Amino acid sequence: MATDNVVHQLAIRVGNKLRDERLMLATAESCTGGLVAAAMTDISGSSAWFERGFVTYSNLAKIEMIGVPADMIDRHGAVSEPVAKAMAEGALRNSRAQVSLSITGVAGPGGGTETKPVGMVSFAWSNRLHTAVETQQFKGDREQIRTQAAAYALRGLLELLERRER
């Protein structure tokens, strides 16, 4: 699938940038189930810049593994910018990485609501000093939504890394 190649090419670009900057990455993924971590570790030598990936699919995993406050999930729902932010920051707190990304969303085909439809995905990118958050709406089937989300997360990380240079 062409989109898988896009994710792979973005992972290579991110890996090169991380290597050049001597930075380590941690990921916290929910709806993508580790797609970003898999793309990163498909690259030979990625242990030089990929520190770890958390697949926190359940709410309890988000709470136990990366310290997302339970009351935050109760208040905002797992698919929300506050939870995405807490996931990215929790991935940094629970790793040796200097940068992180997080993804939480509704990949479908079920699970969507009127306020959080299928395809809604919240992202966060953090560098310990600043955390950026954003929500996007993707279209397609489950595989397409997950792949689009992985690619979007990697593009956002590239932007974060490029801002560090300025």
Rank of each mutant, 00 (worst) to 15 (best):
156 G>T: 00
106 V>H: 06
95 S>N: 04
73 I>Q: 07
86 A>L: 11
103 I>N: 01
34 G>M: 08
63 I>C: 13
75 R>V: 07
88 A>H: 08
165 E>L: 06
131 T>D: 05
85 K>P: 04
82 P>H: 08
59 N>D: 14
52 R>P: 00
148 Q>K: 14
16 N>H: 12
109 P>H: 12
142 R>D: 13
48 A>N: 09
110 G>W: 07
101 L>C: 11
133 V>D: 02
146 R>D: 08
142 R>P: 04
108 G>Q: 09
136 Q>I: 10
78 A>M: 11
33 G>I: 00
122 S>N: 08
16 N>A: 12
120 M>P: 12
15 G>M: 01
85 K>T: 11
97 A>Q: 03
120 M>R: 15
18 L>S: 03
19 R>H: 14
125 W>F: 06
82 P>C: 07
148 Q>C: 10
157 L>G: 09
164 R>N: 08
52 R>E: 04
76 H>P: 02
4 D>H: 11
143 E>K: 04
30 S>A: 07
54 F>R: 02
108 G>Y: 15
20 D>W: 13
48 A>W: 09
86 A>F: 12
43 I>E: 00
76 H>R: 05
62 K>Q: 12
62 K>F: 00
66 I>D: 06
106 V>C: 03
25 L>Y: 01
129 L>I: 07
98 Q>P: 01
57 Y>I: 02
8 H>N: 14
17 K>Q: 14
9 Q>T: 10
142 R>Q: 13
158 L>F: 04
68 V>Q: 04
45 G>I: 08
115 T>G: 04
152 Y>L: 13
31 C>A: 07
136 Q>Y: 06
